[in-house]
Design a protein around this nucleic acid. Sequence first.
RNA 1: GGUUCGUUGGUGUAAUGGCUAACAUCUCAGAUUGUCGAUCUGAAGCUACGGGUUCGAUUCCCGUACGAACCGCCA
Length: 595
Amino acid sequence: MYRTHTCGELRITDKNKLITLAGWVQTIRKFGAITFVDLRDRYGITQLLFGESLNNLLDENPLGREFVLQATGTVSERSNKNPNIPTGEIEIIVSSFKVLNKSVVPPFTIQDDTDGGDDLRMKYRYLDLRRNIVKKNIELRYAVSRAARNYLHHQGFMDIETPFLIKSTPEGARDFVVPSRMNPGQFYALPQSPQTFKQLLMISGYDRYYQVVKCFRDEDLRADRQPEFTQIDCEMSFVEQEDILNTFEGMVKFIFKEVKGIEYTEKLERMSWEDAMRYYGNDKPDIRFGMKLTELKSNYSGEDRNIFKKEIEASGFKVFNDAELVGAISVPGCCDYTRKQTDELTEWVKRPQIGMAGLVFAKYHSDGSLKSSVDKFFDESTLKSLAEKCQAKPGDLILILAGKEERTRKALSELRLEMGERLGFRKPDEFKLLWVVDFPLFEFSEEDNRYVARHHPFTSPKPNEIHLLDDASQYGTIKANAYDMVLNGNEIGGGSIRIFQRDVQEKMFAALGMSKEEAQHKFGFLLGAFEYGAPPHGGIAFGFDRLCAILGGSESIRDFIAFPKNNAGRDVMLDAPSTIDDKQLEELQIRFNLK
RNA sequence: GGUUCGUUGGUGUAAUGGCUAACAUCUCAGAUUGUCGAUCUGAAGCUACGGGUUCGAUUCCCGUACGAACCGCCA
């Protein structure tokens, strides 16, 4: 046995016990005849005291940072206590020790405030994982997974594994593919999600399934995206949308309670996709703060979405008149923005990523007066009515963007989030959940010149709209039985009620421009299965990594993955991907045609 | 595919069209019997790569590589 205790558990009540610890040398502090060593393991840090009698032994077996050390000694009360660590009242008077392994000098310090940059820490991820801060993230991840599993288990869900070597599917993200040696010229694909398998499990009668499972998508990465990521994947039979929303609202609340100690008692708001787009410009609104979008003029019919249209037409202001959408947000308490600040905001919206031509603003001063960048076109009383219509209060800064519908809506959303961020409204320790529901079933793809599934091709239309699948002119109007759970402006989960009748599924494939033969070739197994008594079913999948990151107050999911990949999908520790031996290529009968 | 930013001792940062490239930390050696971000003394160690401008480039310009963030993309 290497140890009797861990480095985090000994207390003053253990005084005089003879114990053995094993761990890593955190720091060495030498004071002439005596030497202090902080010994670290996963559980904490305990101070070792090497007395004068061990000096010869220490000279023969010098210690260094990150050496693996076993030490036996007596728990003793410190004369100088350290209130900052749980074991701070005691130290170990070492009687004997053994260096179990040496360490070269690590490339960065293994401390909370390490001197290592991101790059280096990725390369030596196994060292970075020793750091307390990283360890806490990994522990949080485990706590989330444990809570989810506990909840689902107690709700009668079964964890069932599904294969990783599957068939490439046309819809959705790019597949990672794996060549098959035994079937030359043919490829497996890694699953983008276990979608079809969980539906088949429903057909098999396993009416409550879940899996914490890896998914693979070969797309470009971001701080919150990895080529392989983890989902909490769930599916239920004999349920309607309402059942699923309630079940998984419960799961997320349980996770909050278990992991963060937060009792999230209020019922989750349900917001239609249409309202989300209208009031937040975004299908995953951050509702921790207001600053909702106001449509001054839009393509939509209806007075309430064109509240300033008449005034705009009367003004002769070309920028607004030519725009598909003119939208505003009022930013609380920012009416005193200086020229420099408004110029800076204008530059911000003109960045290529936002892509607006300019920014119009109106300062609603505390004395009730209004000063705008378009005073030439609107007199003060008109601006006053504008302010009222935007529900601006004295002291607010009204920001207005105009242009093409889609881009402008997106820009307004970005601007709202940016101002929310600047004003400190996006607190990482405040959590606001909501459901976004009633998504459109289809989305028109300019690139492919056809409709594509907004969620995925197995999503059921609203039951009373299924007949619209027979009329191609109606595709754009069909609403889906699909839903997303949104946390602080992030989509953390999404799902749908599925199609479970063969004929509906065939219509769906046809709507997506797939021929009967193609549908049969790619999804014949599913269509076939639908003929053998498929139950009504639906499900949801949560982005596990992202959920962990948000609960941990971080923007980056990499911090919550033990061995993450970088921006370009490389594992810099392994140096993967890499070339393979000619022999392997030969076996696979693969030759390159590199461009 | 695109945009932006970055690359200076082991690590993290600073500065400069020219002189010994600075600071902190780490490392090594010495001192030190109560430290816990120990302290003190000393030592060692740096301008990513390729090209251009220039009398002279770490600095300015172009390219490459690598990293990061974002846009496109991600059912």
